Simulated assay, not measured.
Amino acid sequence: MHVTHLIQLAVTGLLVACLPLSMVWMSSDANKYRKLVWVAVFLTFDLIVFGGFTRLTDSGLGCPDWPGCYGMANPFLAHEHISAAEALMPTGPVTVAKAWIEMIHRYLAMGIGFVIIALMIKAWQQWRRTRASAFAPLMPTLLFLLVCLQGAFGAWTVTMKLQPIIVTTHLLLGLTLLAMLVWLGGREDNVLAPPQPSHDPAALRGVRRLAIGSALVLLVQIALGGWVSTNYATLACSDFPLCNGQLVPEMDFEHGFTLWRELGRTAAGHYLPFSALTAIHWVHRNFAMIVVVVLGLTVWRAWPHAHLRPTARKLALVLSLQALTGVATVFLNFPLTIAVLHNAGAALLVLLVTMLNYKAKYQLDLASPTPRAPNVTPASLHQ
Rank of each mutant, 00 (worst) to 15 (best):
99 A>F: 10
339 A>K: 09
76 F>W: 15
264 G>I: 03
119 L>W: 11
37 V>G: 08
335 P>Y: 05
243 C>R: 01
53 F>D: 01
342 H>T: 04
49 V>E: 00
214 S>D: 03
278 T>K: 00
341 L>R: 11
46 D>K: 06
346 A>S: 09
125 Q>D: 07
70 Y>M: 08
156 W>H: 08
49 V>P: 06
231 N>S: 04
340 V>Y: 05
144 F>G: 13
239 D>V: 02
209 R>W: 10
16 V>E: 09
34 R>Q: 13
355 M>E: 05
42 F>R: 07
270 H>R: 05
73 A>I: 03
106 R>Q: 13
194 P>N: 03
45 F>W: 10
12 T>K: 05
240 F>A: 09
342 H>W: 04
369 P>M: 02
66 W>F: 13
159 T>P: 04
8 Q>N: 11
189 D>Y: 00
344 A>W: 01
71 G>A: 06
277 L>H: 10
356 L>Q: 07
299 V>D: 06
97 A>W: 14
297 L>V: 15
364 L>K: 01
382 H>P: 00
119 L>T: 04
375 N>K: 11
198 S>W: 03
42 F>M: 06
20 P>E: 10
217 V>G: 04
271 Y>E: 14
276 A>G: 06
124 W>F: 14
280 I>Q: 09
178 L>N: 11
36 L>P: 03
284 H>S: 07
91 T>R: 15
43 L>I: 02
98 K>Q: 03
354 T>I: 00
337 T>M: 13
361 K>F: 02
382 H>V: 06
229 S>G: 04
277 L>K: 14
40 A>P: 02
181 L>T: 12
29 D>S: 09
118 A>W: 08
304 P>F: 13
222 I>Q: 03
209 R>V: 10
90 P>F: 02
85 A>K: 14
157 T>G: 15
351 L>V: 00
171 L>S: 07
149 L>M: 14
92 G>E: 07
219 L>A: 12
116 I>V: 15
304 P>R: 14
161 K>E: 14
34 R>L: 04
371 P>D: 01
24 V>Q: 01
313 R>W: 10
87 A>G: 03
1 M>Q: 13
285 R>D: 13
333 N>A: 13
239 D>P: 02
351 L>F: 07
368 S>V: 07
116 I>P: 09
239 D>C: 00
239 D>H: 01
145 L>Q: 06
299 V>L: 12
119 L>I: 07
89 M>Y: 12
231 N>M: 06
138 L>P: 02
272 L>Y: 07
303 W>Q: 08
55 R>G: 05
49 V>K: 09
5 H>Q: 15
50 F>M: 08
119 L>D: 09
197 P>E: 03
352 L>I: 00
203 A>Q: 05
6 L>F: 11
70 Y>F: 15
122 K>G: 11
178 L>Q: 10
257 F>S: 06
75 P>A: 10
299 V>Q: 11
151 G>V: 05
244 N>G: 08
137 P>A: 01
56 L>Q: 11
169 T>I: 15
288 A>D: 11
278 T>F: 00
329 T>I: 13
81 H>E: 11
246 Q>S: 11
20 P>Q: 08
248 V>G: 02
121 I>G: 02
302 A>I: 07
77 L>S: 12
109 A>F: 09
265 R>I: 01
122 K>L: 08
73 A>V: 02
94 V>C: 07
97 A>R: 15
246 Q>R: 03
234 T>P: 00
